[in-house]
Design a protein around this nucleic acid. Structure first.
Length: 447
DNA sequence: AATGAGCGC
């Protein structure tokens, strides 16, 4: 007898279609907020926002368990994409086995979407083709559509059908592209399969001439032109181009010669890129490098509130120094020099920062319990405030979890912003250091 | 022009 795999499984791997996974949660969403929302669809057995064990920071997802599957189905239908703190939540059946998610099968990519098309509209148009596991419009931090999105179906046929029927169609007067979702790597190899005649070769020794290239590449087919690039004095720039009459020969030459050593130099041999292709690639790499720099400094800054007025920069540093290396530390003051009761502490690593957060948040210092949180970057903060503003509504009567300590209005100017906006104190990393870092990245990647 | 992230007591 064939086993039928359940669509969703509970904690013991037992079929449980009454368990929902709720993702894309704003970090400040609490259990009680989730409860408030999901109780509207039926009897809720339990809710939980998952949190980091040591910092208690929300992981941005949670679970809602209903007592019966119909209620869960209703919740999915009714509540998917409901904004919480201004951020649309994404609901799926709980599925703890990650294999389906990781496989990325039946996943499609849609671009050139009208900005007015939101998650719900996307879901509605694509649900005609099958059962949707997950669906989302890419947005900027304020929630504005970036004009593209993703839909993952539970089977390939539905995905292919959606592609066949909707690719090139007009949606809200815009012609959309609908195609298979491809990871960057896969896209690049697909691109490299396109035919080409012109071959780029680099890392030549200075003495390698056009004649040498002709001899070596000529083995693979007829060459129509060959050039070694040189500077004004005729000195080789150590790269060149070989154009083949036949694209198959060009591909063969690349296959055979890439990575081979000549005069102790390991050649790079590949498809010659057009100027815009090369620019695109460089731009991509640059952005990747920037992201790495930003990530490196992500989570190292703590925002401190409810500081006793008697505490200054030095005392603040002393309070936190046992957790690691402090790279910057500042108590915020008003123009007359009186402490605003808030400040920033930056550590050299995010591990140190999160340990400090866990240990120091709520700790009594002089007269009051400290409030310690990760400092937010300018973008995050702006988007959050905007979201909260657009969300304002009467306070709910839901059962609430008692906070361990007084809650303060969240949010404060983050230290992180100093990294690239370079305004106001306290600067964590001096601008000249940033320029140095960026410059070395450029040198490294663009060579 | 743009090709994601994601599963617990």
């Amino acid at each position: 007898m064939a086993q039928i795999q359940p669509a969703a499984t509970g904690p013991n791997g037992v079929a449980n279609t009454a368990s929902l996974y709720v993702g894309d949660l704003d970090v400040n969403i609490t259990d009680s907020q989730l409860y408030d929302l999901f109780i509207q669809a039926g009897q809720v057995l339990s809710v939980r926002v998952c949190r980091d064990l040591s910092t208690r920071r929300s992981l941005g997802y949670g679970y809602v368990n209903y007592s019966n599957p119909q209620d869960a189905a209703r919740a999915l239908d009714l509540l998917n994409f409901t904004p919480l703190n201004g951020k649309p939540i994404r609901i799926m059946y709980s599925h703890r086995d990650p294999s389906i998610r990781k496989s990325g099968t039946a996943n499609i990519f849609i671009k050139n979407l009208d900005k007015s098309i939101d998650n719900k509209a996307l879901h509605d148009t694509f649900s005609a083709f099958g059962n949707i596991l997950s669906c989302k419009i890419a947005t900027d931090p304020s929630g504005q559509s970036k004009g593209y999105g993703f839909v993952q179906f539970d089977n390939e046929e539905s995905a292919q059908n959606a592609i066949d029927k909707l690719n090139g169609m007009l949606i809200n007067d815009k012609q959309v592209y609908v195609g298979q979702f491809l990871r960057k790597q896969e896209r690049e190899t697909a691109l490299n399969k396109t035919k080409f005649n012109n071959v780029y070769v680099k890392n030549l020794s200075e003495s390698t001439t056009e004649e040498d290239l002709k001899n070596i590449f000529g083995e693979f087919g007829t060459i129509t032109s060959v050039v070694v690039m040189r500077d004004g004095d005729g000195k080789s720039k150590c790269f060149g181009f070989v154009n083949f009459e036949n694209a198959d020969d060009a591909a063969e030459a690349v296959e055979a010669l890439n990575g081979k050593k000549f005069d102790e130099k390991e050649w790079y041999v590949g498809k010659a890129q057009k100027k815009y292709e090369r620019e695109l690639e460089l731009k991509g790499r640059f952005e990747q490098s920037m992201k790495e720099v930003v990530d490196k400094f992500q989570g190292v800054n703590l925002y401190i509130k409810n500081l006793d007025d008697s505490i200054g920069d030095d005392k603040l540093k002393e309070l936190f120094s046992e957790f690691g290396t402090i790279t910057s530390c500042k108590v915020m003051r008003d123009p007359s020099g009186i402490s605003r009761g808030s400040g920033f502490v930056a550590f050299s690593t995010s591990e140190e920062a999160s340990r400090a957060l866990a240990e120091m948040n709520g700790k009594m210092v002089v007269s009051k319990p400290l409030y310690v949180a990760l400092a937010q970057r300018k973008e995050e903060r702006r988007a959050r405030l905007q979201a909260q503003f657009s969300q304002m509504r009467p306070v709910s009567m839901a059962p609430s979890v008692a906070p361990r300590m007084p809650m303060y209005p969240p949010g404060a100017p983050g230290l992180g912003q100093q990294l690239f906006y370079g305004q106001g104190p306290p600067a964590i990393i001096p601008p000249q250091v940033i320029i140095l870092i960026l410059f070395s990245i450029l040198l490294f990647h663009f060579s």
